[in-house]
Design a binder for these strands. Structure first.
Lengths: 221, 221, 221, 221
DNA sequence: TATGAATGAGCATTCATTCAT
DNA sequence: TATGAATGAATGCTCATTCAT
């Protein structure tokens, strides 16, 4: 009956919306207080649900975290792919890459932090994801791609841009993977600043600084 | 009597040795499982002491962590100061800096991780350290310098080298602080690699890669 | 809907009932083994709940104790006020006071003991109570009056009765506060009997004894 | 040999002196922080001995406490016996009794507190003492009398005075034991004042107040 | 004899997760 | 479906007591 159909649809919509709310709230908390510092109680309270409800939407505390991270990476993968496909010069696209990543992860700083920090977490995270045992009745949903596949893909996009720059003569001859890894490191390092960072860089300033040095070095030619 | 003296000496030595063992074990665990992930019970078990004994040697879990971090930073500060004072070219010293840091922190990777991760911790850490209330009878020992002071100092050593390079004409004109911060970021980024790092760089390879790009950029001159 | 209403009511009732059980059990234990001698584990076990559940009902071990003491004092304050307001002679009311206090605190002997013993506790107790920071979601409940205010009030009720007796000519001239304090001391002393008390006094016997000596002492010949 | 004899004597003297120091320090601490609040570490530190040494002089924490209490009671028993034997009137001796007890226990308030409070303690205390298992090698020493025997004795001294007063016609006819128990209660009550005691009584004031009310109450008009 | 070192047993408190309604 | 209630398993820390020198 159409009636049932509509009701189901409504339900599904509400479910999705609730999921979204929980994830949003959780992300804020994870970013602010870290993974271990965030209690499921906190998430529940902030999302205005009971704790048990949270567990109806997500398998695990880790599951919640996983979803957040995957969404984040997925998004950036999409956006970066777009940039890589542009017709501008390699230098230009590189600069855009940098700007995008700095900008996108600025508000998610601690999320990245967590990802790169809590090793146990990541291990479990990857296991769970790989093992794929974490589908459960209604919660079933295809995991589009593995996180590391996505990250590899991002890496490769970047690599391709550099490779193109090399063959086009924009960049000098070198191992593009090395350069690419180094660029990744620079950006990571920009996020993981200590507690005594003297100067705060805006996204623009940071983009300029990084592109400049990465492209030209600090040495007099 | 000489006899007593010797016995006291032996005892002191054993105390020191035990401390060392605990710290060593704790460092390993902190590095492996993070600060919060490491229970004092774990440390005790691995060090083959009872938990209470751990508390005879250290005031706190945080105290243990503090000691580890401080020792690490202090050591690198000393070593880097030596390098900075050498009579070689700025480029050469820069390269040595990079090599030293990469090498020294290779085994302490996650220690740095923790330091950059657990914000609350660091706050307490600095407070405790400043307040200096955590000495206890035999545990007394002067804290030579504040952590942030030490870190600032390291930063400044690096800065000075770059400044000298600029005035000597080795490096082109630029804000040395920016360059310095960027170099710091690169090295941090090298440590905070994700779980999917494709290629493992030896210290030498990494040093070459970083110096090369940092000094010359990737662009064709 | 009435249905929901009823269910909620039922739940609330059970909550209240559980609280009551815990408090009852805790009181018994505190009375038997003192505050420090009673572990939250003990309370949990005797109340047939898990320790964690205890913490769902009360903020703290101290909180549990606080609730017990406050309820006790509050109750006696109320009852004594009633007695004080009666129209009988001062002598009669004094006798009732004595009888009430002896009777009411007979089973709570050690509770009073604790209160008069564990000075640190009381300090915290008063602080917490004053600061009033120890409410938590459902646990919220207004603390009607401060403990010391309540105790002062009891003292004053007693004082008033004696004062009235003096002005009515029942008692001889004297400082009512002194007399009042002395009476308080007598009753306290009756509770804090050592382990070798020769004779056990029933409430009636004790009331007679105390009234007799105390009244004939302060009464006009 | 005389030589050995002297040495032994010297040793014994030192032992006694050390014991005294420990007991003195412990008493202060017990009085100030209660039994449970006082750590053996505290006692050791304050007595300037190592903790292990404390255990060479005393079996137990409880043993230390026991010794203190026994010495205290023994002393008061001796002094009170002297008073009881005086040739003054019953009233006069009663007053002296009161004054002595108030004065002697003023500085030991909390000691009495502990004795009357920590029930477990007293139970163990009595058991240990009765069982008499707590002699140990050199620690052996005759316990002159059981605590309760001593306390009974004190009670009886008091009783006798009152009895004499009754037969001499100073006091009116009554059960001397009742009167005696009541007087005991008054004095106990004077020590166990709450945390909100309005007025502080000097020993003299308190003696006057108590004697006045108590004596006028039992005295023939 | 005196003591520094070591420890087992215990304690208050937290939190992710399950369950009954 | 949503949730309040319940809990097992940890965790950091303390302290009386024992032991080896």
């Amino acid at each position: 009956m159409n009636d049932i159909d509509l009701r189901t649809k409504r339900k599904l919509k509400r479910r999705k919306e609730n999921r979204r709310i929980i994830l949003e709230v959780a992300e804020k908390l994870f970013v602010k207080k870290g993974y271990r510092g965030t209690a499921v109680d906190d998430i529940a309270e902030n999302a205005q649900f009971s704790k048990a409800t949270i567990y109806r939407y997500f398998e695990n505390k880790l599951d919640i975290f996983t979803q957040i991270v995957m969404a984040t990476i997925e998004q950036s993968q999409k956006d970066l792919t777009k940039i890589a496909k542009k017709n501008t010069s390699s230098e230009e696209r590189l600069r855009e890459f940098i700007q995008y990543i700095l900008g996108y992860y600025q508000k998610k700083k601690n999320l990245a932090r967590i990802l790169f920090m809590e090793r146990d977490l990541i291990k479990k995270f990857v296991e769970v994801e790989r093992g794929g045992h974490f589908m459960h009745h209604f919660r079933k949903k295809k995991i589009p791609k593995n996180v590391d596949v996505m990250i590899d893909d991002i890496f490769n996009q970047l690599c391709k841009v550099i490779k193109q720059g090399i063959s086009s003569g924009e960049f000098r001859k070198q191992d593009p993977k090395d350069a690419c890894f180094l660029l990744g490191a620079i950006m990571r390092g920009f996020h993981f600043t200590g507690f005594n960072q003297v100067k705060k860089y805006s996204v623009e300033e940071a983009t300029d600084l990084i592109s400049n040095v990465f492209l030209n070095g600090i040495k007099k030619p």
